[in-house]
Amino acid sequence: MPILNPSQPAVPTIVPTGQLRHLTVEQVKRSDSNPRHLFDADELLELKTNIAEHGVLVPITVYQAKGQAKFSILDGERRYRCMVDLVKEGRRGKDGAELTLPANVVEPPTKIAGLLYMFSIHNFREGWELMPTALSLKIVMADLGTSDNKSLNKLTGLSEPQIERCKKLLLFPEKFQELSLDPDPKTRIPSNFWIEALPVLDLALETSDQLKKLGRDRSTEKLVEKYRDKKIKSVIHFRRIMESYELTEDDAPARSKVLRRIEEFFLNPKLETREVFDEFVVEKKRVQNALAACESFLIDLRKFRLRYTASDDERSNLRRALHEVQEYCESLEEALKGSDDPEASQD
């Protein structure tokens, strides 16, 4: 039998903090939470050309976790990536030596500091990766004792709508949150599913006695089962349900029909979203009217030549009115956002 050759890494040297070191790329570990699409390719190329010519002039900031062999980047991921590319291309320093990165070694960040740093990166992330952000936000809210959106926005850099979406995710029991943390994209329930399902669940449980009896968790499970069975082909289809409800506000018989359909939709696993609710939302005139209204609003405003309005009162009134329009438009635009997880195949 061949001899078993054990393999163990070398003992990492403990490096005092507050030190400027020159590290090779192999001694540095890239950040796990830094998504690749964060970096603009053209800017990265420009930086790389600059580094190839002058070297890294501003040291990166790194720390070494206890027991860790490499240094983790706190600041300087772009400089590091450029250097990795240059090393791959076989570049050497002017003296022919291996390329190195100047690095300030600092203490590992505290838990909250680490989370806040991660948030600054997550700002650039897409909606379908929201569950990890939501979980981290929960820790920040608990540790810092605040759940106010404005304070959280200042602390984390997440926009208020993003914070609101995270909070919606946290409203679901952990057993459902866990479904969005499944490593397998084929079985993972995308975070957007919960965000889009929430108003439907609230409405259904408020209006259906049968669903009330069934309970919130079981009703949620029914939606999950439907999604897995491809009876909800896109998370955006939840909007058809809400749209059907809103559109029948002034039509009592149609409204009660929608409510009956919602109940049936939950209870009958075979019913697919579009076949149940499309008849209520076929009317496209509303959106066309809204588009026309946006266009004429802009044309009218431009016609008024308001840019050089002189009167203080008039300017103040106009600004107030525009602010109101802006707020409504922004909230509407935010509400219209949403998409399926590109990794989730529901076709």
Binding site: D32, S33, Y63, A65, K66, G67, Q68, A69, P108, P109, K111, G114, L115, E129, P132, L135, S136, I139, L181, P183
Partner: peptide
């Protein structure tokens, strides 16, 4: 995948 959820400093 699980690394996206790491909290704190861990080797």
């Amino acid at each position: 995948f699980i690394a996206k959820n790491f909290v704190g400093t861990f080797s």
